[in-house]
Amino acid sequence: MTLNIAHRGFSGKYPENTLLAFRKAVEIKADGIELDVQLTKDNVPVIIHDEMVDRTTNSFGLVKNFTYKEIKRLNAGGNERIPSLEEFLELAHDSNIFVNLELKNSIFPYEGLEDIVLNLLEKYSISKEKLILSSFNHNSMMKIKEMDSSIKTGLLYESCLYNPYNYLKTTTASALHPCFASLLQNIDETKDLIEKNVEINTYTVNDVVYMKALIDLGVNGIITNYPDRLKELL
């Protein structure tokens, strides 16, 4: 069965990566939530997608240049605030929802991010059966596996990978997290991956036509801004 994973929460209708968007995803009974984590200047993990706060808040500048106290003052839409990872994990623990946590370290390395994230996941007793960490930084995902081989990891990529099955095996990762277009552009390869039981969670699918095509292919998870649309199809 294909999982319905709310991209940055229910971001199609509510401010992305906010507690409101996460709560609304839980309310409509999405199977999971995808979210992004970065570190503030004082090494507090916070939930925001862009490396800069310009697009989603009433301020400007790099996330890594704000202290946690400073970043919590920003308006992330509708008077919502940028949540800390701890605030999200409290909600995730209580709701028992599947968590797809993306480490946003493909531009800035955020030294210690892997350690900080793993420690918090343990603190809040997040079930490893309902958890996957992902990143465009594949070295980071290999580091996660070295630190805890039982944690599932997903390799994010936008364009097509050459021989993705072999690449997945060399990285020790658990799943592929491709842009949906790369799957539809290479149907035979996608079918082959699925036949080989490769876990595929694809992003960001908002059109019901593409949702249906991917469900029919049998991907494991669809990451969408509109979990309500996907839920209706499923």
Results as ranks from 00 to 15, higher is better:
1 M>E: 08
4 N>A: 13
8 R>Q: 09
9 G>Q: 08
12 G>R: 09
16 E>A: 12
17 N>S: 05
18 T>V: 10
19 L>W: 02
27 E>G: 08
27 E>P: 08
28 I>T: 04
31 D>Y: 12
33 I>C: 04
34 E>D: 09
35 L>E: 07
39 L>Y: 13
42 D>E: 04
46 V>T: 06
46 V>E: 06
48 I>V: 12
53 V>T: 09
57 T>S: 10
62 L>H: 06
68 Y>T: 01
71 I>G: 03
82 I>F: 00
85 L>V: 09
87 E>M: 01
90 E>F: 06
99 V>L: 13
100 N>Y: 14
100 N>F: 13
106 S>Y: 12
106 S>V: 01
108 F>Y: 15
116 I>N: 06
118 L>T: 04
119 N>K: 14
124 Y>E: 03
125 S>E: 14
126 I>M: 06
127 S>H: 08
127 S>M: 07
131 L>E: 02
134 S>P: 07
138 H>N: 11
146 E>W: 01
149 S>V: 13
149 S>N: 13
160 C>D: 11
162 Y>W: 13
165 Y>V: 03
165 Y>R: 13
168 L>N: 00
168 L>E: 00
170 T>N: 07
173 A>S: 13
174 S>L: 06
177 H>I: 06
184 L>R: 04
186 N>M: 02
188 D>I: 03
189 E>W: 00
190 T>Y: 02
193 L>R: 07
196 K>T: 07
196 K>C: 05
201 N>C: 01
207 D>H: 06
209 V>A: 15
212 K>L: 10
222 I>R: 04
224 T>S: 14
224 T>E: 04
224 T>A: 08
226 Y>W: 09
227 P>H: 04
233 L>F: 11
